[in-house]
Design a protein around this nucleic acid. Structure first.
Length: 798
DNA sequence: ACCTCCCGCCATGCT
DNA sequence: AGCATGGCGGGAGGT
């Protein structure tokens, strides 16, 4: 992680490949990762120690040292590592060592549970490979070797690889062999997942669950049950396709065995989990909700507690890997029920790349190439699957894929690399260290960044500005940026949020045509399901935006204020892939991310507002809301256009849905009391647009591993509900995310935050937020929700 | 006591 | 049969 830079174009662990005895490898040593690029293939593995500790020259290394100095835990770990290094993986050696130790000592020498965590292991694993591998090089991964080198059971490697596979960061080549793709396809994959998530109406589902919860809450007599009629109905009827696995051509599973595998549950779960983040507005997803949704999709019938528990366990596994990838980070959402573990998306903001609008990040030359041809391929086999989700592809496809890949390699050889160098920074975040250290780490990081990436930052800022100008916030993402450049016309104003539930064009699975530049994705559906998919029907009407949130709010209001969330977004994202080709772009994405919270902040305040309306009343309100929602916004549509993604709109909906009428919407909202009279939701992103976020529930998000993300403690109020609120989304789309045209100030802020945020010591709760981007800084308006008044303000609260 | 999630049994399915 | 995969959930470490 930390040193990805170095890894950039090195062949992924050749050493491993050629190396004979794995044992020598330094499993432990690699911990944070730094792999020296040049281990010769045949050379014996260099001692990890050298590697890991001798990185002084790297900024990362410095950071580590600092952290280590400060953190006993880390130091301890390092020490252990040292031990191992000495023993160098030879079990015998280690044992001997242990023999000399007293029980106590022995214990200490034993890696603690934490040190064996999947997250850490994943970091080690990732450290072995460059984020953006040179396709020309051999990027094969031998699971056995990796397992040995990392000193873990192969089973654990599967856990990691399966998740990576779900993101197309690796693809299976053959038994025991995978190919490392790194992040080349990541954005594209995420875009696809987002599209699929939208189609699946995950946003709606989340809302429903939330709603249910609220209702239950108020209904004391009811005990909390996982099984929900709603869910069931959703899954069953709403055509929720039980999509199995979204593949990216060229990266698909090649081994028949794998393809045939029953469910690929971990992989599928991982994708779905990611989808949830991508479609929810505050990109925060609680494990509980995620588990319910995932279960719901599968077999609602069997929902039971044990299943739920199991699901949660799996989600933790997945979350650990995703966290290592810096795509999410753990937070806590405080609701009436108390603190609930949740995860916040910290990955790049992405725009759906469904039908063809370009993939999110077409930049990489390599990708372009692959994409080109992939489209065709995909389509064909999609349907191969018959009874069960079949991942098997037609032979011809395989050939295609191969050829594509070879092309890709040729093409890619030089490409991307240069810029990527910075990634190290981002990865650093991932290293888990005590939250206490987080700040320190953040600071260090900041410093490092400043030192190393000044130029880049500037770039980022610039991009950000441009992004602001863009109508839709999401556009800020790299992808968007690209879009903008290439096809400005495509971009739609925020207002464009489709209020009309549009039947998903893509209903049938299948292939998501890529933009010209991008490859298409094939979604394998169960045959039966595929059919179902089409009608968005059932659910949409029901969706009730916020009601539940309100409820929550009341109770939760108390908590609400409290938290700080880390908004590391700016930093994390920025740092995340410094090296990437699209540094600037990515950062923008980050910005967007940051922005999102803005709306939430408002909600927080709202939370403060007290309502305490009677439950009954609340319910009534809910009902009203529901109706409204039905009337005005289809969840689906909302979901589809999460953050005002122009691309999404265009692509997903063949016919750009025009906002029926912002006036109508406003009227409705006002009428319902969802927004204050003064407020306006405008269809087009413009100044004055009011981002209204229905999420009433003010939830505070507390970043958990500050360490990972550089924990800056910034206050970040998030309404949990926001995740799903349809309404919220719809409304939010309008304004919140897309701040008005960028004001100079805004941009400045951005820049500022960019630099400052990370390092900033914890801000007192109240403070803050400045980190978000300028866009947020404007207070937009107040949203009234039944009983509660939500203040939607993007501005910095203090 | 609850949250996390490691660990490894064992089913599944390919070779 | 043997091996690769990976579902699954008991139960233990952490807080």
């Amino acid at each position: 992680m930390e040193n990805e830079k170095e890894n950039l174009f090195f062949e992924p662990h050749k050493r491993g490949l050629v190396k004979t005895p794995l044992k020598e490898s330094t499993a432990a040593n690699i911990v944070l990762a730094e792999i020296q690029p040049d281990f010769g293939p045949l050379t014996t593995p260099t001692k990890p120690k050298e590697i890991s500790q001798g990185e002084p020259w790297t900024p990362t290394a410095n950071l580590k040292m600092l952290i280590s100095a400060v953190s006993p835990e880390i130091r301890y770990r390092d020490q252990k590592r040292g031990l191992f290094d000495n023993g160098n993986g030879l079990p015998e050696a280690r044992d001997c060592l242990h023999e000399h130790l007293s029980g106590d000592e022995y214990e200490k020498s034993q890696p603690s549970r934490k040190e064996k965590s999947l997250g850490l292991l994943c970091h080690k694993f990732l450290a072995r490979y460059p984020n953006y591998p040179n396709p020309a090089v051999n990027n094969d991964i031998c699971l056995d070797e990796v397992a040995e080198e990392l000193n873990v059971e192969r089973r654990r490697i599967y856990d990691i690889v399966n998740v990576l596979e779900s993101l197309h960061m690796v693809s299976r080549l053959a038994k025991n062999r995978y190919t490392w793709h790194g992040r080349h396809n990541l954005n594209q994959t995420l875009g696809t997942l987002k599209s699929v998530g939208e189609e699946n109406k995950y946003a709606e589902q989340i809302m429903m669950i939330k709603k249910k919860e609220y209702e239950q809450e108020f209904d004391f007599s009811k005990s909390y049950r996982i099984e929900d009629p709603i869910i069931k109905s959703n899954t069953g009827q709403n055509g929720h396709p039980d999509m199995c696995f979204v593949e990216l051509p060229g990266v698909e599973f090649r081994a028949a065995s794998v393809n045939s595998r029953k469910d690929k549950s971990l992989r599928v779960m991982s994708q779905k989990f990611v989808m949830l983040f991508l479609v929810s507005t505050p990109q925060i997803v609680s494990l509980e909700v995620a588990a319910k949704i995932l279960i719901g999709e599968d077999h609602v019938e069997d929902l039971d507690k044990s299943k739920f528990k199991t699901k949660i366990r799996r989600l933790y596994d997945i979350a650990n890997v995703l966290s290592s990838l810096d795509l999410i980070k753990k937070v806590h959402v405080t609701e009436e029920r108390g603190r609930k573990p949740a995860f916040k998306w910290t990955g790049p903001e992405i725009s759906p790349n469904p039908s063809g609008l370009g993939p999110v990040l077409p930049f990489a030359p390599s990708d372009l190439e692959g994409r080109r041809s992939s489209k065709e391929n995909c389509a064909k086999n999609l349907f191969s699957a018959r009874g069960r989700p079949n991942f098997t592809r037609h032979p011809s496809l395989i050939k295609l894929v191969k050829s594509i890949e070879s092309d890709r390699r040729k093409i890619n050889s030089a490409p991307t690399s240069p810029i990527k160098t910075n990634k190290a920074e981002s990865s650093q975040n991932s290293v888990p260290f005590p939250s206490k250290m987080a700040q320190l780490a953040a600071i260090c990081k900041m410093q490092l960044e400043e030192q190393s990436s000044e130029p880049r930052k500037k770039v980022k800022v610039q991009l950000a500005r441009s992004g602001h100008c863009k109508p839709v916030a999401p556009l800020d993402t790299p992808a968007n940026a690209e879009l903008e450049m290439t096809a400005p016309s495509l971009i739609q104003p925020l207002g464009v949020v489709p209020l009309i539930p549009s039947p998903l064009p893509s209903a049938v699975p299948v292939i998501l045509p890529q933009a010209p530049s991008g490859p298409s994705y094939a979604i394998y559906l169960q045959p039966a399901q595929a059919q179902t998919m089409t009608p968005p029907q059932g659910l949409s009407p029901t969706v009730c935006p916020t009601p539940s949130s309100n409820a929550t709010r009341s109770k939760g209001s108390t908590d609400t204020t409290t938290e700080n969330a880390a908004n590391d977004a700016p930093k994390s994202s920025a740092s995340a892939r410094p090296g990437s080709l699209l540094p600037g772009l990515e950062r923008q994405g980050t910005k967007n991310r940051d922005r999102e919270p803005a709306g939430e902040r408002g909600s927080k305040r709202a939370s403060m507002l007290e309502d305490n309306g009677s439950k009954r009343k609340f319910k009534e309100d809910l009902k009203g809301l529901e109706n409204v929602s039905t009337l005005m916004v289809s969840p689906t549509s909302v979901a589809a256009v999460p953050v005002g993604n122009s691309s999404a709109l265009t692509s997903s909906h063949p016919v750009p849905v025009q906002n029926p009428s912002s006036a109508v919407v406003n009227f409705t909202l006002q009428h319902l009391g969802l927004i204050s009279p003064g407020m306006q939701v405008s269809a087009s992103p413009g100044p004055g647009t009011v981002p209204v976020s229905p999420r009433i529930e003010a939830v505070s998000v507390t970043p958990e591993n500050a360490g990972t993300q550089q924990g800056r403690a910034t206050k970040y109020d998030v309404s949990v509900l926001g995740q799903n609120q349809t309404n919220g989304q719809s409304v939010a789309v309008t304004g919140a995310q897309q701040p008005v045209p960028v004001t100079p100030k805004g941009s400045q802020l951005v820049a500022e935050s960019f630099f400052r945020t990370p390092g900033g010591p914890t801000k007192p709760k109240g403070s803050s937020c400045v980190d978000f981007d300028g866009a947020n800084n404007t207070s937009i308006g107040t949203l009234f929700v039944p009983q509660r008044k939500l203040e939607v303000s993007t501005e910095d609260v203090h």
